[in-house]
Design a protein around this nucleic acid. Structure first.
Length: 457
DNA sequence: GAATGTTTATCTTGCA
DNA sequence: TGCAAGATAAACATTC
């Protein structure tokens, strides 16, 4: 179960002021992360943004292991999204299907980071599946998420419109034990990502607000692009490329919940009808993969000695979290489900129009984008009354699937209920989608329903 | 001084 | 082979 803490550990009082944050003139640096404020198009495909830019797209979302997370629930046709009741006993850590799941013997970070790859063909240990790793308690396995993903997860889990850097740190360390003991250099990478990644927007702290540093939020324009980007081609590790092999491995080597098997069989059956999935190999439904060594040196952050001469992040009394920040943050108890983000869109919780899940922020406050002040009016890229779908796709350097995504989005918008103004992150909290809806989506697109379902799964 | 934020450089892997 | 993407490291500036 892909679940992250999503309780409201961020007391309202702590963020109350932030809702009215006004950009101060104290920005000493102007960043070039510019939202096209003149573009009043509610362009769901972000025509003003080159999504293919490095660190621009939400392609990292595709890296999120969506399938393993809730496929069994889907098989039940009732997909309960972000709906773990507060205080439930469900694991608060991501990808926790069974909190008592594996605890690998200590290894070097590099070795464990690629444990999945190593455990594949022939040597795949049924239990050693990252889907079942409790990252909250397992300090030896690096979570297979990019830093951008981690940041966004923290933002989503906070259920707040914006969070501080220290909150991000804390959420990560609270939910990923690995980073609790890792060399704190990863924090540098977090900061680097926040600064560089266009998906994140800095919201300056008001001068009368105590604390240090700015707040950060997800760029709503990229939230808009969630769906379309979710269909984007993803990079595939070699072990992923062979879908047949992958399926075989998953079917034969991994113990699957019954519901999961049923869904798989169902998909296989429907796939046989449709012959093939033209995009399947690139869909986010693939297994999450820990790429061997990650992106660069492909080694995990060095793990500090647990005995602790090194700087080690501790949960509550870390110097990373000043008193005022710690008051903002409580233990994260709710679950967090990324595929629910997509599902929320399907069920209409994810507003694809001018609002968007994060747009409530934009309506209420000024913010800076790469140092550029964005007023609420400017920030709004459209209105609910006048949704502007892509007029200028040609200028959008987006692949051909945009047309499909366009249709999908149009369909999804038709599903959208009233809650768009309910605001904040509540859109993530409760929603259900059944498989029929997914099929309706596929059919409404006039294409292969399996493609869409596979895409969304 | 520590935390935060920005920028640059480098490296590795996967993909076209 | 070149590019994209992500990770890492480091230097530097700003703020508290």
């Amino acid at each position: 179960m892909l679940s992250l803490s999503c309780a409201d550990p961020w007391p309202e009082g702590s963020m109350g002021l932030e809702e009215k944050v006004v950009t101060t003139a104290g920005q000493t640096r102007e960043r070039d992360r510019v939202v096209d404020t003149n573009n009043n198009n509610n362009n769901i495909f972000c025509s003003s943004i080159n999504l293919d830019d490095s660190l621009t797209s939400l392609q990292w979302l595709q890296e999120f292991p969506i399938v393993g997370a809730s496929v069994s629930q889907r098989a039940n046709q009732q997909l309960h999204l972000f709906s773990q009741p507060q205080g439930s006993d469900t694991p608060a850590s991501p990808l926790v299907e069974d909190p008592t799941s594996m605890q690998l013997t200590p290894r070097t970070p590099t070795a464990v980071a690629s444990s999945r790859v190593q455990s594949l063909p022939g040597i795949m240990a049924p239990c050693h599946c990252l889907d079942e790793v409790d990252y909250k308690t397992n300090a030896h396995i690096r979570p297979p998420y990019s830093y951008a993903t981690l940041i966004c997860m923290a933002m989503q889990a906070s259920k707040k419109t914006k969070i501080t850097l220290s909150c991000i740190y804390q959420w990560i360390t609270d939910n990923f034990c690995y980073y609790r003991y890792a060399d704190p250099n990863w924090q540098n990478t977090i900061r680097h990502n926040l600064s560089l990644n266009k998906c994140f927007i800095k919201v300056p702290r008001r001068k009368d607000e105590p604390g240090r540093g700015s707040f950060w939020k997800v760029n709503p324009q990229y939230a808009e692009c969630l769906l379309s980007s979710a269909y984007k081609k993803r990079r595939m590790a070699p072990v992923q490329s062979d879908l047949a092999l992958q399926d075989k491995l998953r079917v034969n080597l991994q113990p699957q919940p019954k519901s999961q098997r049923l869904l798989r069989e169902f998909k296989e059956a429907t796939a046989a009808e449709q012959n093939c999935y033209p995009h399947q190999g690139t869909m986010p439904g693939s297994l999450p993969v820990v790429r061997e060594g990650g992106g660069n040196k492909r080694h995990a952050p060095s793990v500090a000695t647990i005995n602790g001469d090194s700087k080690v992040l501790r949960r509550s009394n870390s110097p990373l979290f000043p008193v005022d920040e710690q008051k903002e943050i409580g233990p994260l108890k709710e679950d967090f489900d990324w595929d629910a983000l997509l599902d929320s869109a399907l069920s209409g919780k994810l507003n694809l129009e001018g609002g968007e899940p994060f747009s409530c922020i934009m309506k209420e406050e000024d913010l800076t984008v790469r140092g550029t002040l964005i007023t609420p009016g400017e920030a709004s890229v459209g209105t609910a009354d006048t949704p502007v779908l892509v007029e200028n796709q040609a200028s959008n350097d987006v692949p051909d699937f945009d047309e499909e995504a366009f249709l999908a989005t149009t369909f999804l918008e038709n599903l959208r209920p009233e809650e768009e103004e309910q605001g904040h992150s509540d859109f993530l909290c409760s929603s259900t989608v059944n498989v029929d809806q997914l099929f309706d989506l596929g059919e409404s697109l006039g294409g292969d329903p399996n493609f869409w379902i596979d895409s969304l799964l």
